[in-house]
Design a protein around this nucleic acid. Structure first.
Lengths: 193, 193
DNA sequence: GATGGAATTCACCACACGGTGAATTATAGA
DNA sequence: TCTATAATTCACCGTGTGGTGAATTCCATC
């Protein structure tokens, strides 16, 4: 029952389990409130092991929240011609990211930490500015493209906050399709006013 | 120069100074990352004094973030007939709250802490649900009024996050009037689709 | 002008934090 | 099979945290 000293018998990918636990806890509590001890406990592991694998809490966080989003995908989605207007496509893509349990957790962690932890904020800012704004601006090709893209970002952040973080009803439990139907026109207007 | 023991000579309202410092720090760092010692240092006061005045960090937070918003004001603003559509009026009111240094700080503190601190989240949820959604729903009088109001809330939260917390450019530095001109129609559409 | 109470600081406490260094055990390669 | 190495735990360390209790100083009331 009690933990044994030394290397475990092969089989489990402990490092990966630590990342899973870390993602969950960063997503629930944000960077500061998440403790190495808490993550370790959740992963069924000694706290020191986390530092052995990742050197510091900061690095752990980066590894846990490194959501492998594809910046090019966004441009493709907006630029493509399948399924409705660009606004609708972008909206569905965004909602899809949050509805999928796999991608939701790193996003939650990112967003929850962004308000407290400067590095996370920088990361999110970069993501929005570069990936979203940059790509959108390229596709749009108007003078105020940057502002337009930021407005799109603001609505998307607000949606994520209200629906997935604060869980305000009835938005939180509403059907994704319903939400998309309401939000998409807003995005569309921001993109092509 | 060094601090003296015992009661200070009359003149300053130390309790109020503590609240000012607390508001600033909660607004900059959120609940968890803000320490009593930090607040005390900023207020030029011994940490124990804070606990003497407010009993606990939790109570300090509640006192510091108790933004005296007037729920009735929102209903009045939406319901009134001065200056543009309801969406425009609401948007200007909201932006006004954030552009004013006095009201901005408690709001920042609230928002920054809402993602990490459950009590703060509850507080913000309550504010949005009751004050905003409730009042808007009454004025609107449609079946999906609650959903509409929440969508309005999501755009407003997103705006605050992008512009005042994450400070994403060019939204952060844009002229308030410009921002209002872009956002207001969105709110208007959510209210009266 | 004495006196009770409020305001303020000081010296601590128990605890949790992130992080370090050595000891122990299993795995992988020779 | 022997050995180097990677994985894991343990015992700590220094620091910072929210919070407590007593001592000190001023203010206000009589």
């Amino acid at each position: 029952m009690s933990a044994q000293r030394g290397r475990r018998i092969a089989g489990g990918d402990t490092r990966a389990e630590i990342l899973v636990a870390a993602r969950a806890m960063f997503g629930e509590s944000g960077y500061t409130a998440t403790t190495l001890r808490g993550v370790a406990h959740r992963a069924g592991v000694d706290p020191a092991l986390i530092l052995h694998h990742f050197g510091s809490k900061e690095v752990l966080f980066r590894n846990a929240t490194h959501v492998s989003f594809d910046p090019a995908a966004i441009a493709a989605i907006i630029g493509s011609r399948d399924g409705g207007s660009p606004g609708e496509r972008l909206c569905r893509y965004f909602l899809g990211l949050w509805e999928d349990g796999v991608t939701r957790e790193p996003l939650l962690a990112m967003l929850r930490s962004a308000l407290t932890h400067e590095a996370a904020a920088e990361s999110l800012r970069e993501f929005l500015s570069e990936a979203l704004v940059g790509r959108v601006a390229m596709v749009l090709d108007t003078a105020d493209a940057a502002l337009r893209a930021t407005l799109v970002g603001s609505q998307l952040i607000g949606l994520a906050m209200a629906r997935y973080v604060l869980r305000i009803e009835p938005l939180a439990s509403a059907d994704p399709a319903t939400v998309a139907a309401w939000i998409a026109p807003t995005l569309e207007r921001y993109l092509t006013a």
